[in-house]
């Protein structure tokens, strides 16, 4: 085997995304579009969390906008955003050469392994909200965490079989690294040589500013609390009606509403724990129901 060779750098943020899309499409992944709900992480897309359950093979990749209200910084912090993108890949069962496939994806976006120091550093992923955990690594490139790499072991509190390999790329961070940019808002969103060059800031800065004000100052906590109860009720009813997919949607909604309430600092630590437990019950409940039904469908 000869030493791996990297491609030339992509021209822009979107070019980087397109390369990942093309690369994972070539590995047989279904290229999905982002899920149409607010989620805190790409993993929560049902294409990952629910598809990791049950006996059927699955391969998918997609960009997922992630909303983390408490991380918003009014567009003033060069590294932190309340809304950002993750690139998510799931391969079930994980192929034996998944590490190589992953490394090749980095070479695809112009990271030269003969110049950069790429490492797999122990980091076991856990998401108590959906009762999921797995073993894997943070992938470091010159000391920067560019991806999370996980072999799922449990989802919804259930052992998974077969095991999925899950890759999460923090797209902005990865792009900042590839382009050598210190401020996320300076990333070239499209080709800087194009007729209308747009930076990441041109696209998202105003959004960060206004959303921050919403998250920290303007969100109507009382209304959100009512919403939360509504989502909880709806999710529970759907699950009981044997419809785990919409039940899961409403668990996601509840989760986001909770994140908004939390960002307003409106709850005490004890209440906070109680909210988290309620979201977890909804998400797990839906996941368990889904797993149960998938197994039944596979058995037919």
């Amino acid at each position: 085997m000869t030493a791996p060779v990297a491609r030339e750098k992509p021209a822009s943020f979107q070019d980087l995304i397109l390369r990942l899309q093309a690369y994972w499409a070539a590995q047989g992944c279904a290229i999905l579009q982002p899920y149409d709900m607010e989620v805190g992480a790409g993993t929560l897309h049902p294409a990952t969390v629910l598809r990791a359950l049950g006996p059927k093979d699955w391969r998918a990749a997609y960009v997922q906008p992630s909303r983390r209200p408490a991380d918003a910084r009014y567009g003033e912090n060069p590294n932190r955003l309340g809304h950002y993108y993750q690139y998510q890949v799931i391969l079930k069962p994980n192929p034996a050469d998944l590490q190589d496939l992953y490394l090749n994806s980095l070479y695809e976006i112009g990271i030269d392994p003969t110049v950069h120091d790429i490492r797999f550093v122990e980091d076991d992923w856990e998401n108590p909200t959906v009762g999921a955990w797995g073993l894997g690594w943070e992938v470091w490139c010159d000391g920067m965490e560019v991806s999370q790499y996980t072999y799922f072991q449990q989802v919804g509190g259930l052992d998974v079989f077969p095991v999925s390999g899950e890759l999460t790329y923090g797209l902005e961070r990865l792009a900042m690294y590839v382009f050598g940019v210190d401020n996320v808002y300076n990333l070239p969103f499209n080709d800087p040589a194009s007729q209308t060059p747009l930076s990441y800031g041109d696209v998202f800065l105003q959004n960060e500013i206004e959303q921050s004000a919403f998250n920290f100052e303007l969100a109507d906590v009382e209304m959100l609390q009512t919403w939360f109860s509504g989502c909880e009720k709806q999710s529970t009813a759907l699950r009981e009606a044997g419809k785990p997919l919409p039940a899961y949607d409403y668990a996601l909604k509840a989760s986001h509403v909770f994140n908004l309430i939390d960002a307003r600092g409106a709850i005490s630590p004890t209440e906070r724990q109680a909210f988290i437990a309620r979201v977890r019950d909804l998400a797990r409940g839906a996941a368990e129901k889904w797993a149960e039904q998938e197994a039944e469908r596979a058995a037919v």
Binding site: N94, P95, L135, Y151, Q153, P162, V163
Partner: peptide, 9 residues
């Protein structure tokens, strides 16, 4: 200390 399964193994 912590172990895992992978693929279909």
């Amino acid at each position: 200390p912590k172990s895992m399964r992978w693929g279909r193994g």
